[in-house]
Simulated assay, not measured.
Amino acid sequence: MNDHPLPKLRNQLLSLHKILMVAERAMYEKEGNVIQSPNHFLQLLMSDERFAWLRELSQLIVMIDEAMEEKPPITRERADALVDEAKLLLTGNNQAGTFSKRYAVLVQRVPSIAAANAEIEKHFGPPVVP
């Protein structure tokens, strides 16, 4: 597993998640909403429908973390499947309300998200067929 891109991909997804949270928070506050504290923001992330789309990425990061801690160590096939899952999440499903639809809009509008996306896409091979 040392030569597999999964650990690096996980770190890049975590950085992307932070960038997305900052961007979403800025848009939320620009609309006149007030976030009173970090704890209030955490509550919004966990329970407000506005932020629900971010939970899909959170769940994927947790799945990768759990897989990398498995005993015996994660197989290459399982690691490849998680990379494919990330690819599908970021590029594969443009139905209304899904992560990838909202994400695609932000990739076009926010340069830091586009840059993070470009780095992550380096881990993806040919298109994933769901």
Rank of each mutant, 00 (worst) to 15 (best):
L20I: 00
H17Y: 14
M63Y: 12
N117P: 04
P5F: 04
L42D: 12
P72A: 09
A115V: 07
R78N: 08
N33K: 03
A81L: 13
F51N: 00
V110L: 07
T75E: 08
K18L: 08
V107A: 02
L42T: 15
L54Y: 04
D84G: 10
A79I: 05
M68W: 02
P72W: 02
P130Y: 08
L13P: 03
T98L: 13
V83I: 13
R78P: 00
E66F: 12
A104F: 06
K71H: 11
L88Q: 12
Q59K: 10
A114W: 08
A116Y: 10
N94F: 15
S15C: 11
D3E: 09
E66C: 09
Y28C: 12
L20E: 00
S100A: 11
K8T: 13
L13D: 00
L6I: 10
L88K: 07
D48F: 03
R102H: 11
L57D: 01
D48T: 02
F99T: 04
G125D: 02
K30S: 14
L57Y: 03
R102I: 02
N94C: 06
L16E: 06
S37I: 11
F41G: 09
E69Y: 11
P5W: 05
Q59S: 12
I120W: 08
D3C: 05
N117T: 10
L90R: 01
L9N: 11
D3L: 04
M46S: 12
L89D: 01
E69K: 14
A116L: 03
A118P: 13
A114H: 10
I61N: 04
E24P: 01
E31N: 11
A52V: 00
L20K: 00
H123T: 09
P73Y: 14
F99V: 02
P7Y: 01
A81P: 09
L14F: 09
P111Q: 03
E31I: 06
M21R: 15
P72N: 05
N39F: 15
L9M: 10
Q36E: 15
I19W: 08
V128E: 01
R76D: 11
T75G: 02
K8Y: 14
L16A: 09
I61H: 01
V22E: 13
W53A: 01
V62C: 05
P7W: 00
V129A: 13
L88P: 02
A26G: 04
N2G: 05
R50D: 00
M63W: 12
I19Y: 10
L9T: 06
D65A: 11
L82G: 07
N11W: 07
D80L: 03
S58Q: 10
N2E: 15
K122F: 07
A114K: 12
G125I: 00
P72R: 04
F51E: 00
F99E: 11
G125Y: 03
L89I: 04
A114V: 04
A96F: 05
V129S: 07
E77D: 09
L6G: 03
P38N: 15
S58Y: 07
A115L: 11
F124H: 13
K71L: 08
K87S: 06
F99H: 06
N11H: 13
K87L: 02
